[in-house]
Design a protein around this nucleic acid. Structure first.
Length: 477
RNA sequence: GGUCCCGUAGCUCAGGGGAUAGAGCAACUGCCUUCUAAGCAGUCGGUCGCUGGUUCGAUUCCAGCCGGGAUCACCA
């Protein structure tokens, strides 16, 4: 089982999610390719204080605004009210501090925050009005996410919602308390003591009885253990800032008696940073996923129009192609880097379409396809004994032979970057061969047909390799 | 402060106990009447953070240090 994406429903997807989603998807595909049966799952963090914040703000300032009435994509609309909440919250904090409160007090006592907390309590009691609003606004978000996922070309086999699993989590925490695995403080909050495991004490349930992030994660994990009892590996694709959290989670599951905890693995990846540092939603430096996808297709269009190679195609085919090429650039950019490393995205320089990039690889593939289109399959026979290999061909053949090893290593290390870099090297060798060695122009029939076969082989391997990364190969570009 | 991760060309990144450490971008030279130039051929550019250790051999493994990041909430 591979989990990826795990979005909150209070704001749209951004560049960080993109790395997560492409990474999780690629790891799942790579594991499939070496023979595992893989279930791709998504956990949707649809409940909690964060969505209550958007809800409070919408009630205050929304005037009934909907995606339909405003023409704003659902997830973006809800995100807009999340920002509204934050603005008001900041203002109220400042007012309280002006009246002599400490920053800590101001944060806790700001009226909107109290409203959001009250709303969370009402939600947990299934208050009709709150619940209805929650369903409505989440519905907007899901629709928005769906369109983004579809543009990204990723899919899931099963969706989990925290609103379905947090009660189970709460239950399990209470059961654990009865069994003496956890303990309760005087104020009523419930804790686990992990000091023997080298960690700390960690709260599992608030004093008001509402559940926390970790509570719902316990529930979700157990739900999955039950749904998929044969799962050998449960991989959580989540950023490295949550390493401690997963450490704690797995130890708690073990304490609760789930041996499957040993099969759980946190596939941790580094942050995508901007030249000025981390993306901050508060400072508006977050790179929006939809925007970036659109920009990439736009660049693909510019390049294509400049070169005029697609002039024979109808508009809809062109648009599809721009998207295919743009996504290749974007996905390749994010996947070629070792997941454990932080990486840099510079919006000013944008993402390249030349050199070590997705489009470069697509271009190599397109060249193989152009060659193959010009020959009949039936007349491609050759006598290998009459073929003497040149250096370029040898180099390609050696690389072709390496693929299974690269794939195995990528699976073992959960690192799609190995496949990405492999495909680049193969295409680089192929391009050199293509440009320096005659193929269709070769007069010796055995040699010509051998070279055509080599094109075929390179093309299909590159296509297969890139497919594992979720990157599609066009027929022409 | 504890724990974890990262440090390789001006920039972005590969690599990995063994020979002259690679690629892309940037800069500069050539190459489209010839299978699509989103390309090819080439020039320039590195005491692989520092110091020790293990080893016949370390950029790679180990330790310490320095620099950068993450995390240690009744946040998610």
């Amino acid at each position: 089982m591979v989990e990826y994406s795990s979005p909150n429903t209070n704001k749209p997807l951004h560049l960080g999610h993109l790395r997560n989603i492409f990474l999780g998807y690629a790891v799942a595909e790579i594991l499939k390719a070496i023979g595992h049966k893989v279930t791709k799952v998504q956990i949707i963090n649809d409940r909690g204080i964060h969505i209550c914040k958007s809800m409070v703000a919408w009630q205050k300032f929304g005037n009934g605004e909907t995606p339909e009435s405003s023409g704003i994509k659902g997830d973006k609309l809800v995100g807009k009210y999340y920002v509204e909440f934050d603005k008001l919250y900041k203002t109220q904090q400042a007012e309280l501090m002006a009246k002599g409160k400490t920053e800590e007090e101001a944060k806790q006592e700001a009226p909107v925050m109290l409203e959001a907390q009250e709303m969370l309590r009402k939600w947990e009691m299934k208050d009709q009005e709150v619940y209805g609003l929650w369903q409505k606004m989440n519905g907007w978000v899901y629709k928005g996410f769906e369109s983004t996922y579809s543009a990204m070309g990723v899919d899931f086999d099963k969706l989990y919602y925290e609103s379905d699993s947090y009660l189970l989590g709460k239950d399990e925490v209470l059961k654990g308390l009865e069994k003496g695995i956890f303990f309760q403080r005087e104020d009523g909050s419930i804790w686990v003591d992990l000091t023997e495991e080298g960690l700390d004490q960690k709260a599992l349930l608030r004093k008001d009885g509402t559940s926390m992030y970790i509570t719902q994660d316990i529930g979700t994990a157990i739900m999955r253990f039950r749904d998929f009892p044969d799962t050998v590996y449960q991989i959580y694709t989540v950023g490295n800032e949550q390493e401690y959290h997963f450490n704690v989670l797995f130890k708690i599951l073990k304490k609760l008696g789930w041996q499957q905890a040993d099969a759980c693995y946190h596939l941790s990846y580094g942050m995508v940073e901007l030249p000025e540092g981390k993306m901050k939603s508060r400072e508006g430096t977050v790179v929006d996923a939809d925007d970036l996808i659109a920009v990439m297709a736009g660049v693909a269009k510019e390049v294509a129009e400049e070169q005029g190679k697609l002039d024979g195609l109808v508009e809809s085919e062109k648009e599809l192609l721009y998207h295919t090429i743009g996504m290749a650039a974007l996905k390749y950019f994010l996947l070629r880097v070792d997941p454990v490393k932080n990486m840099l995205f510079n919006p000013k320089e944008s993402i390249d379409f030349n050199g070590h990039t997705g489009p470069f690889i697509q271009y190599g593939y397109v060249r193989t396809r152009a060659i193959l289109r010009k020959t009949e399959k039936s007349v491609r026979k050759f006598d290998l004994s009459k073929v003497v290999l040149n250096q370029a061909e040898k180099s390609i053949i050696v690389k072709l032979h390496d693929f299974p090893e690269v794939l195995a290593e990528a699976a073992k290390r959960y690192n799609p970057g190995l496949v990405a870099n492999y495909c680049f090297e193969l295409v680089k060798d192929f391009n050199s061969f293509y440009q320096n060695v005659p193929i269709l122009r070769e007069e010796n029939i055995d040699l010509r047909n051998f070279r055509i076969a080599l094109c075929d082989k390179v093309g299909s391997l590159v296509q297969a390799g890139m497919r594992l990364l979720g990157i599609e190969m066009p027929e022409r570009m």
